[in-house]
Design a protein around this nucleic acid. Structure first.
Lengths: 189, 189
DNA sequence: AGCACCTGTGCGTTATAACGTACAAATTAT
DNA sequence: ATAATTTGTACGTTATAACGCACAGGTGCT
């Protein structure tokens, strides 16, 4: 069985249980037959986009509720020093220091990134629902969002959906440093 | 024709054009037949989730690329500039700029705080489960956590439970600037 | 010019989504 | 206790997704 169908099966079952709906009630609310909802929940069928749309509408939730892939724990008072955490992962003109690694409890991770002059990169889209918060600490840089390069200066902050193609570049003579908070949906607690 | 299919049709055509792929090439990359891709682009068919998954994989992009922006889409791209957001809320030796106001979806808010020389403050505990992430941008300061004043210098970061008494102070001759991410539990999405 | 190849569409066939219905088992009402 | 109702599953039927193939028109090469 397709892994995506498996996720969808679990998500639909979960949503229905949370609302305490029977298959019959869910069928009435969504306009999708009871038999089909049962098939989806058992992972026996992969619905069309149009059918999933009806289901999402009936549950008053978004499509991503049913398409989201799922996402450790740790805690201690620990001072994290960027100077010690900073690394150059590749021969790129870029340095990275993990200020806060990802933790499910908070739903985000945070990096300090240093873009040396000439550095440019376009990232593949993250998973659906992921967003990034950019805060420029020093220098000036550009961020590629919605097919557009936006210029950000020191002290400027921007949030954008990272589940689309996006990028970073520094075409200025000075180094640029920014913090990047990557937030993952359906987490936190 | 279903509005969702219409969006999907346009999105697929756009993606394919951006990559300069023919239907034939796209079929080879995605493992979905040329005839079916054509049907989808003309809005004549609503693919199953499994098929859309194959298409997204072939295009190396996420499912959300092909689905309605109604998926919790970031409404507007807005650059936030600390210099314009900075305020002095009281006659304290402290300035604050709200970089990202609290939003339930992310479960946190973020401030830039400027502690002028001599500023000291001890905060009442937040609600249970609230935590703070401190990142010193410039200068040096101390944070009161667990009854202990910890010294933090530029580039250092610390996370602590804020549902206990905590505080900030700057007893140095230079101004200190830090970012404060306040994360609230049982939120986010 | 002719020929080879590519492109997108239409069509018939196959596979499967989606449906309505029947029904055994479970739950609720009297 | 019995009767009525609800629940989820299986099954056969209908609708449509998904396919392979043919082909008219376009493009590139010689």
């Amino acid at each position: 069985m397709h892994a995506l169908n498996q996720y969808l099966a679990q998500a639909l079952k979960t949503q229905r249980q949370q609302k305490k709906w029977s298959l019959d009630t869910a069928a009435k609310q969504t306009g999708v037959s009871k038999a089909m909802l049962g098939q989806i929940e058992r992972g026996e069928s992969s619905p069309t986009i149009a059918t999933l749309w009806k289901i999402a509408g009936g549950f008053s939730t978004s499509l991503s509720t049913f398409l989201e892939p799922s996402i450790s724990e740790q805690s201690s008072l620990q001072i994290r020093t960027a100077d010690q955490l900073r690394q150059q992962p590749a021969s790129d003109n870029m340095l990275v220091a993990t200020l806060f690694p990802y933790e499910e409890k908070y739903g985000f991770e945070m990096y300090e990134l240093t873009l040396l002059t000439g550095y440019q990169r376009v990232s593949e889209p993250h998973e659906p629902g992921v967003s990034e918060h950019i805060i420029v600490i020093s220098g000036e840089m550009e961020v590629l969002v919605n097919g557009l390069w936006l210029s950000l200066q020191k002290g400027q902050a921007l949030r954008f959906a990272a589940d689309q193609e996006h990028g970073y570049r520094n075409l200025h003579p000075q180094t640029a440093v920014f913090h990047d908070i990557i937030h993952y949906p359906n987490t936190g607690n």
